[in-house]
């Protein structure tokens, strides 16, 4: 069972929810797909870390073969190539790795080489297997890293997997939820929160994923996010109250369910609710 946790914006408690759900599940896998700013490992502090580099394929020119026809320069939609003073220049960080220049070079002067853009780390924290994707600073697209993170974690039905998605509703988020069985949308109780929740709500609808909402940092009084859920008939999985103690644990990168019985209860019951929802989805769809 793969559960993706997402939010329209950072800072809503996406990592709090995914980390604590993974920690409260006996044996589970936690995958941090927020490759630009991975934070989950700060909580899990995983041990026995294995690392693997992730690379993309970019062009390399053999100057002896290049005739200067500029077909590659004209073809590249990303302007990653320039031809100056009888020499081809490749701008590696602008390249999207589409392979077009190589395919269409009439002299076969272009070949591919690997370029490292980041890495994937695997480690363990108690019984949680922790995967972290890290995109190198200055690199533009984290999608190859997410593909690698998720490809090696093909769903095993007996093991729960929690995917901590990047914030927003960009293509990188779509890649992260592609194979998810269920999506948890985390929202804050403000009008900003509603606007951001509406974005991810549209996203999960387009992808036709079953989903529910976690209302985080709930205060006394009106909660616009709750109102939105009721209007749109979105299942509210849990309301997590604003709580100074939880805030402090979280800001010190402590896993709340490992520290305090109160939070263990909240997240265990959230886990049960989610399991029931997923079960309900699978039975009603078959």
């Amino acid at each position: 069972m793969r559960i993706a946790v997402l939010s329209g914006k950072g800072g809503t408690g996406k990592t709090l929810v995914s980390v604590n759900l993974a920690a409260v599940t006996k044996t589970s896998t936690y995958i941090d797909c927020d490759v630009e700013e991975p934070n989950g490992y700060l909580f899990f502090k995983p041990e026995n870390i294995q690392e693997e580099e992730v690379s993309i394929r970019i062009p390399k020119v053999d100057e002896k073969l290049c005739s200067g026809c500029r077909k590659c320069v004209d073809f590249c939609k990303f302007n990653a190539l320039a031809y100056i003073k009888d020499k081809l220049i490749v701008f590696e960080e602008v390249c999207h790795s589409c392979g077009g220049c190589i395919m269409f070079c009439p002299e076969k002067a272009l070949t591919e080489k690997e370029k490292v853009i980041g890495k994937v780390q695997k480690g363990t924290s108690n019984q949680v297997t922790v995967y972290t994707g890290i995109l190198n600073t200055g690199e533009a697209s984290g999608i190859p890293i997410i593909k690698k993170l998720l490809a090696r974690n093909k769903p095993e039905s007996d093991k729960q997997t929690f995917i901590d998605c990047p914030p927003g509703s960009a293509c990188i988020v779509m890649e992260s939820i592609k194979d998810a069985d269920y999506c948890i949308l985390v929202a804050e109780p403000t009008i900003f929160g509603v606007h951001n929740l509406a974005m991810v709500y549209e996203l999960v609808k387009v992808f036709n994923k079953p989903f529910g909402a976690v209302l985080n940092k709930c205060l006394e009084g009106e909660n616009p996010a709750e109102k939105f859920c009721l209007e749109k008939n979105i299942k509210i999985l849990v309301r997590i109250p604003f709580d100074n103690e939880l805030g402090i644990l979280n800001s010190n990168a402590e896993i709340a369910v490992r520290k305090n019985e109160k939070y263990r209860t909240i997240f265990s019951s959230l886990l049960e609710t989610v399991k029931k929802e997923v079960h309900h989805e699978t039975t009603s769809n078959s």
């Binding site: 073809f75 939609k77 990303f78 999207h96 589409c98 392979g99 077009g100 395919m103 269409f104 293509c171 779509m174």
Partner: peptide, 11 residues
């Protein structure tokens, strides 16, 4: 959503 507009398919 997946297309990056590289133009390989067109070519």
């Amino acid at each position: 959503f997946a297309c990056e507009g590289c133009g390989v398919c067109e070519a």
